Simulated assay, not measured.
Amino acid sequence: MLFIHEVHRIRGARDDDFEAAYRDGWMPALAQDQDARLLWYFKHAHGSGPAYNAVTVTAAHDPAAWGRVADRLQRGDLRDWLRSVDDTRHGVTSKVLRPVEWSPLQRADLATVPTTVQDHPLSIYMEDTGWPSAPLDDYVAFWGETYYPLLNARPPGERLLDIEAVFEPLYGSGRRKEAILLQKVIDPSRLGYLLTHDTAPEHKAPGTFMHDALAYRDEWESKLLRTASWSPRW
């Protein structure tokens, strides 16, 4: 399964129009093909990133399924929709992702993904993207062998984050040596401590994740993303 990750730089005055195009146009249009669905519609949480940016993640069963969607966008029934959406944004950066071997999300059950608006509470996600100096496979394995068990070892009531998916770009479709953690914020109240406190020295000592991860990468970024009230996954 492929996951198409897009970062949209929206024209401020057209923000509502852009969201409506994805909610009322893209989401139901994908329902015409059983092999593609919009999964997430995110906005940057206020104060945490560029203004008027949205992040969407669309799932396709396989390359052929995404090829059919691309044909609809560039040559078929969605061509006018794409033209109108382009008028609401300054630009879009896209990459095609695949789940790493140990990602909790490997395949989405597309038949159960909503294609009509179903309002729900908002959720916060933390999207971490790393660019390792070490081989990509070693970096991803390090995450799976250290960070993932570290989070899961905490009692559910004490967790800040829960990893829902781990991706790497499909070769030739994005930046080489990149990996992405998509993590749901389980307890938003714990974010305050994370934002207002530095990492304690004992958490940066040899043998800790923060220390040992530097052997694999020292370039990474975190984004706080908030789901729309209608996002199919939240």
Rank of each mutant, 00 (worst) to 15 (best):
W131A: 14
A205V: 10
A215P: 10
W220D: 02
P232F: 01
D109Y: 04
P135S: 14
L194H: 15
A59M: 04
S48A: 05
T88A: 12
G174L: 14
L194D: 15
L110P: 06
T199Q: 11
T196I: 15
G76W: 03
L195N: 14
A134L: 08
R233F: 01
E221T: 08
L151F: 08
P28T: 03
A215K: 13
L38Q: 05
P232R: 01
L105K: 07
T129C: 05
L110M: 06
W66K: 00
L151K: 06
A213Y: 08
L30S: 04
L191Y: 10
D15A: 14
H46Y: 03
I10K: 02
A165C: 05
T56Y: 02
G192W: 13
A20N: 15
P50N: 06
R23Q: 11
E202T: 10
F209M: 09
I124M: 05
Q183W: 04
D212I: 01
L136Y: 07
F142T: 04
A64K: 07
E219M: 07
V96L: 11
H44K: 01
V69W: 00
A213F: 09
R175H: 15
G192V: 12
H5F: 07
T196N: 15
E202W: 13
K184W: 06
A70S: 08
Y139R: 02
G207F: 02
V140L: 10
L122A: 14
A205Y: 13
E127R: 04
Y147M: 03
L195V: 12
Q74I: 06
R154Q: 14
A36W: 00
W66T: 06
A60K: 00
R154H: 13
A65I: 03
P132W: 05
A13Q: 13
S231Y: 00
H197T: 14
D162P: 05
L73Y: 08
S103V: 02
I180D: 06
K177Q: 15
A228H: 00
L39P: 00
V55K: 00
L38E: 04
L224T: 02
P104S: 08
G174T: 09
T129S: 09
E202C: 11
L39F: 06
E127F: 00
V166E: 11
M1G: 05
P99E: 09
A51P: 02
E178A: 09
D138S: 08
V57Q: 06
I10E: 10
R154G: 15
K223Q: 05
H44G: 01
Q106E: 04
S133P: 05
A179M: 13
G76V: 02
R11L: 14
R9M: 12
V7M: 13
R79S: 09
Y52Q: 08
N53D: 07
L105W: 02
K204E: 14
S133R: 12
A111E: 08
D187S: 14
Y52A: 07
P232E: 02
V117M: 09
L170E: 15
E145G: 05
H61R: 13
M1S: 11
G144T: 04
A59N: 04
Q106R: 04
E219I: 07
Y52P: 03
Y171P: 12
L224C: 00
E19F: 05
A13S: 15
A141S: 12
L181Y: 07
P99S: 10
R68E: 07
L182K: 01
T116M: 15
D119E: 12
D218F: 05
Q32W: 03
P156V: 12
M1V: 12
